[in-house]
Amino acid sequence: MQARQLPLYRGWAWLKEGLLLWRANPALMTYMAFGFLLTLVVVSIFPLIGQPVASLLMPILSLGVLNGCRAIDEGRKVGPDILFSGFRGGIAPLVTIGGIYLIASLLALSATVLADGGTLLKVMTGSPVDEAAVNSPAFTLALLIAIALSTPVVMAYWYAPMLAGWWQVPPVKALFFSFYACLRNWRAFLAYAIGLALFGAVLPGMLIGVISLAVPALGTLLTLLVPLVLLPTVFASFYINARDVFGLPGASAASHPLIVDDNHAD
């Protein structure tokens, strides 16, 4: 197992190939994407313990989605229970990853108190805030601090569930290798982020807006239908991304070259 360094154009391809994976089994991909989100939302509803428990469950469910995507990719037939397949193996490393992610996220969010006196923290926790405080420069600064501090946290988490579940990498090492892999592939991730912004928000928004002006009913219908394709495609692209960078357990070196040379990375 080694993190490959991919050229910039592969970031664009993750969404395209994610769409192809969705087309291979749209029912299962749609179920997994919305099932993942719905499960976390339902768990989060419970007072006090809901949010922490949801954070601990997230890596387990993430692994289930990846297992489902891998099954579709390999042409295997699986049932709806694949979403919860992360519970079948050792869940302790996955829960540990979720706990570390939760603590790191809280620390990053807490640091913003120094900038805005806790306004962003109140917004994120659902507490009432003054509208003037939200529109203040201090709140904007707090947002920038939160983005700067949370980005490395997300990078450390990105591949960690897959590394722990498929490769049995210990939690701390999985988080480190994930951060390193994201850093090594910043060009591809930049292209991926641009692709998400264009094809996930800008272009669908423009298309729905234009159609709504001409045929309002059709625009409303598209508002409901587009997420049914877009969201599962994004989830599928996470698997394509992970497969590109780390390959799959048991895959041959010939079919999954380990490194893309720095000099050939766009």
Results as ranks from 00 to 15, higher is better:
Arg187Met: 11
Asp73Leu: 01
Trp186Phe: 11
Tyr157Val: 04
Val113Gly: 07
Gly98His: 03
Tyr31Ile: 13
Phe34Pro: 04
Leu106Gln: 06
Trp12His: 03
Arg23Met: 11
Ala92Asn: 11
Leu196His: 01
Leu225Met: 14
Leu121Glu: 09
Asp261Glu: 12
Ile103Val: 13
Ala27Leu: 15
Val229Gly: 11
Leu141Phe: 13
Arg70Trp: 02
Asn185Gln: 04
Ala148Tyr: 07
Thr220Asn: 08
Val41Met: 10
Ala142Cys: 07
Thr96His: 08
Phe177Ile: 03
Ser110Ile: 07
Leu63Val: 09
Gln5Trp: 03
Phe36Trp: 09
Leu144Gly: 02
Pro128Asn: 05
Leu121Ile: 10
Leu28His: 01
Leu198Pro: 01
Gly35Glu: 15
Pro26Glu: 09
Gly117Met: 09
Leu40Ser: 05
Ala33Gly: 08
Ile100Phe: 09
Leu102Lys: 14
Thr39Met: 14
Gly79Pro: 02
Ser44Leu: 09
Ala181Val: 01
Ala164Trp: 00
Gln2Trp: 02
Lys122Trp: 04
Phe46Ser: 09
Pro232Arg: 05
Ala71Arg: 03
Ala92Pro: 04
Gly247His: 00
Asn25Phe: 02
Ala201Met: 11
Phe179Lys: 00
Ala104Arg: 07
Phe36Met: 11
Ala193Ser: 05
Ala164Asp: 01
Leu37Asp: 15
Leu190Gln: 03
Ala111Met: 07
Phe36Gln: 06
Ser255Ala: 13
Leu183Met: 12
Thr220Cys: 09
Leu61Phe: 15
Met155Asn: 04
Val42Trp: 14
Leu258Tyr: 08
Leu149Glu: 11
Phe179Ala: 13
